[in-house]
Nucleic acid binder design. Structure first.
Ligand SMILES: NC(=O)c1ccc[n+]([C@@H]2O[C@H](COP(=O)([O-])OP(=O)(O)OC[C@H]3O[C@@H](n4cnc5c(N)ncnc54)[C@H](O)[C@@H]3O)[C@@H](O)[C@H]2O)c1
Ligand SMILES: NC(=O)c1ccc[n+]([C@@H]2O[C@H](COP(=O)([O-])OP(=O)(O)OC[C@H]3O[C@@H](n4cnc5c(N)ncnc54)[C@H](O)[C@@H]3O)[C@@H](O)[C@H]2O)c1
Lengths: 243, 243
DNA sequence: TATATATCGATATATAGTTCTCGATAGATG
DNA sequence: CATCTATCGAGAACTATATATCGATATATA
């Protein structure tokens, strides 16, 4: 969760001051690199929820939205929302709030969701098929461009409109299309092997839906999406909500 | 300043993943209620990962495991692991570590996963079907006992070995079986309505896979499982891992 | 034009979470 | 038997995140 810093950090606050003063009012939708750096994980995780609501409001014709409104619909404190939105570099106006379209553009740009990133999916089983069929990804800057599996019965078939290819085809495919993102939905026993192949294919980010902690070289980012985590929290809260 | 000494990680490349991870046989442990209360969310989220690894080790015949080993395979600090395990009420012994079977039982008991909780699933679409077919839930103390949908073409059919029932059947079904947990996998537009019905059916905990912030009365716990959150973190880290 | 007020944005405090430090201990080693 | 050592467990120190406070400001309203 917390990457161990290789370098001994020198001045904690020394050079963090001047980029803030500069302001660098970037054209809407271009977050300053400094701001991006200091965005905490907790903040990043909330941004998609704002985005989801902002798109709804945009569809309803709203031009402005206040942090207060964003907060109340998500059961958050308005202060948190304003702090989160600050990392995108967008400023609101008193009594009105933030411009909806501007905010959407800024959050998308911050997350890199303004251009669709192509990805490959490995493991066209129960979960893989569901993800292939999920149309919501286009709102999240993701497009699954290729599907791969080791099952001879699956290879060559079409699933959710995608051609399922054999595993050896993965590296050339990824290299040819310049794909750097991989979605991993194979069984537990095959997870490490499939991840290794992804790395050899030049994948730099793995979205790991298996409950396996992958052994991966530095430079490759792994995001583990473990259902058990959420269920654990739910179970725990259920057991102690009434007491 | 003090140079951070490189921690000599006893890095056992134990990617020998046993596909047959059994071991759901647990003579129930008993966590103390006080410890349960003060468990933080961050800790609770890590427990399933320990559990997963412990089951593998159990399958390989290990009798003891040290916090150091648990930590290194998950890229965590040993201190965190020991602190996390402390909430289960289990004590380790110096130089040996923790007894594997004892730990498994304790974590399961802590999360309430020693007895399977029955749940209903609403929305037998792409994702709902995948979840219905997921065999891993039996290791997480969950059993989806009923599946519901509003689509007349689906009602009455069998999906993943379950009979799909109509929505009006949900309240009597849940009440009759004493089900208090609901899995929500309907489209965005139907999420609130379906959640309302769940609440009327006596559901106390909703595992919400839609990106909708549900309006729910107090006393009902909602765990939102938003894919976009994880993807946001991945996107963000990818954009700033090399810089 | 003057006043009221919802909202922003910055700073300060509180809480949760992580990392550091160190003494204690049970088993290994000789 | 004496010593060594990996590990545990507890508390302190540090960091990240959440919450509270407050002045500044742009718009609405009188
Ligand atoms: N189904 C779910 O709802 C769900 C939920 C949470 C987590 N997961 C995890 O997602 C993963 C997949 O689950 P699933 O239910 O879809 O399993 P599945 O068995 O339905 O699908 C796995 C797919 O991977 C393919 N595969 C197997 N070995 C492979 C290899 N070496 N290379 C490439 N492809 C290979 C199989 O042919 C199959 O199509 C598992 O690790 C599971 O723990 C699934
Ligand atoms: N498919 C994915 O991989 C994926 C990933 C992340 C999130 N989600 C979320 O999960 C939800 C479901 O996604 P999906 O891809 O499975 O959609 P889907 O359309 O395949 O399935 C939805 C199912 O819900 C049923 N339904 C519709 N209205 C209903 C109602 N009022 N009451 C009961 N059932 C109703 C439909 O008949 C259908 O069977 C969506 O909210 C989506 O955003 C899906």
């Amino acid at each position: 969760m917390k990457a161990k810093p290789q370098i001994v950090k020198a001045g904690p606050r020394s050079q963090a001051i001047d980029p803030l003063l500069q302001g660098a009012i970037t054209p809407a939708g271009t977050p300053s690199p400094e701001a991006v750096q200091k965005a905490g994980a907790a903040c990043v995780r909330r941004l998609p929820a704002y985005l989801q609501l902002l798109r709804v409001l945009q569809g309803e014709g709203h031009e402005h939205v206040s942090g207060t409104v964003l907060a109340s619909t998500h059961n958050l404190e308005p202060v948190i929302v304003r702090k989160d939105l600050a990392v995108t570099g967008i400023s609101g106006t008193p009594r009105l709030g933030f411009r909806v379209t501007e905010l959407i553009a800024a959050i998308e740009a911050f997350l890199g969701w303004n251009n669709q990133t192509k990805a490959v999916l490995v493991g066209v089983g129960n979960l893989g098929t569901a993800l292939l069929g999920y149309r919501g990804f286009e709102n999240l800057g993701l497009r699954i461009a290729g599907a791969f599996d080791s099952d001879p019965k699956l290879i060559g078939t079409w699933v959710q409109g995608r051609h399922v290819q054999s595993m050896p085809k993965l590296p050339p495919f990824a290299r040819r299309l310049g794909i750097t993102l991989g979605v991993l939905t194979v069984p537990v026993a095959a997870a490490q092997e499939a991840a290794d192949l992804m790395v050899r294919a030049g994948i730099l980010g793995i979205w790991n839906f298996t409950p396996v902690k992958l052994q991966i070289p530095d430079g490759v980012v792994v995001q583990k999406e473990d259902l058990a985590e959420g269920l654990a929290v739910l179970s725990h809260r259920l057991r102690h909500s009434r007491s």
